[in-house]
Simulated assay, not measured.
Amino acid sequence: MNMHATATYRIEPCRGCSGQCPHALPAPEGFTRSIDAAVAASGWPVFLNDACAPRPPRHHEQFRIAVACCANGCSRPHIADIGLIFSQRPAVPESCSGCGACIAACPDKALAPGPDGAPSLDHSRCLACGKCIAACPEGAMTVAESGCRFMVGGKLGRRPRLATELPGLLDPRLLPGRVSGWLEVFIAGYEPGLRFGDLVGRMGLERVLALSLEYTSFFAATNKNSEGGSAA
């Protein structure tokens, strides 16, 4: 996956998305293209060009979407308008040989020896990087949940803001609709000079999330209808 940039938005995948990083978790084939199509479906490119006319959009007005294939976040998802991190949460076995390979592999000290030899997991420290799963020589440590960590509203500039992470992991198949929904919320509340993180801070995360899900439902219904029409 290569970076895709236009005058109105940027999609920035990390090197792991194209298989160039040993820490990367697999991303679905065509994932960047599906996000690109979702941005177009939201109407954002046309909207921002019209809002900035007669001049072209400036660099800081581009909507930035960062995609990372591991918790290292080399594409800087924490300071993007929307940040996505592919993740795997481990299912800790009730019993195992107690070799400690998973504990040694965890860079965040989220695993510790349990009283019965099996590891215990500190969920508050786990970043769902999947390293413990890959390190287990017996296959006892398995994947409990996989998907994307989803964060919104990060930015740099005069008043920097770290993105707010939503709870849970999101199925990558649902991400295009989510991205389109968040962009449509931004369009509805847009003002010149306003960044997406500013809008989230002003309206509140829960309100923006509720509105984005309404737009997401419309996006899903529209896509379903168009797919049905093309199949016919």
Rank of each mutant, 00 (worst) to 15 (best):
P172F: 05
I85K: 01
M151L: 15
H123I: 11
E184P: 00
M3W: 06
L48M: 12
P176G: 06
P160Y: 00
A128L: 06
L84T: 04
V200P: 00
R178N: 08
S95G: 13
Q88V: 09
F218C: 07
M141Q: 10
E214N: 12
I82P: 04
P13R: 00
N2K: 08
N72V: 08
G43L: 11
A112M: 02
N225H: 06
M151T: 03
P192F: 15
A118P: 15
I65R: 01
A105R: 04
G19V: 09
Y215A: 14
S217D: 14
I35M: 09
L183E: 01
C52V: 14
G157F: 08
A220M: 13
K109N: 14
T222F: 11
P113K: 00
Q62P: 15
T164G: 07
G193K: 05
D116Y: 04
C132R: 02
V46E: 15
P57D: 09
A163M: 09
A220K: 05
R58C: 07
K155A: 06
C148I: 09
G157C: 11
N72C: 04
H78Y: 07
A40S: 10
M203C: 07
V143A: 11
Y215C: 12
A101N: 13
K224V: 14
L127V: 15
G197P: 10
P172N: 04
G100P: 09
T216G: 01
I65S: 01
P28K: 04
I133C: 08
G229H: 09
C21S: 10
P77M: 13
E138D: 15
L121F: 12
S95Y: 10
E61K: 04
M3Y: 02
M3Q: 14
A80L: 07
L213A: 08
V179C: 02
R195H: 14
R149L: 14
D50F: 01
S230E: 13
F47M: 07
G154F: 10
R58Y: 05
G30N: 01
Q62L: 12
T32N: 05
G147W: 11
M3D: 10
P119T: 08
S146M: 12
A118V: 11
R64S: 08
E138P: 13
L209K: 05
L209P: 01
E94H: 08
P107L: 01
A231C: 09
G73P: 00
I11A: 05
G177V: 03
G16A: 03
L111G: 10
Y9M: 05
A135W: 00
G157T: 08
E206V: 06
R195I: 02
K131A: 15
A118C: 12
E191K: 13
G181R: 00
E214F: 02
H123F: 05
A135I: 03
P172A: 05
G114A: 11
E12C: 04
E29L: 07
A163R: 01
G201V: 02
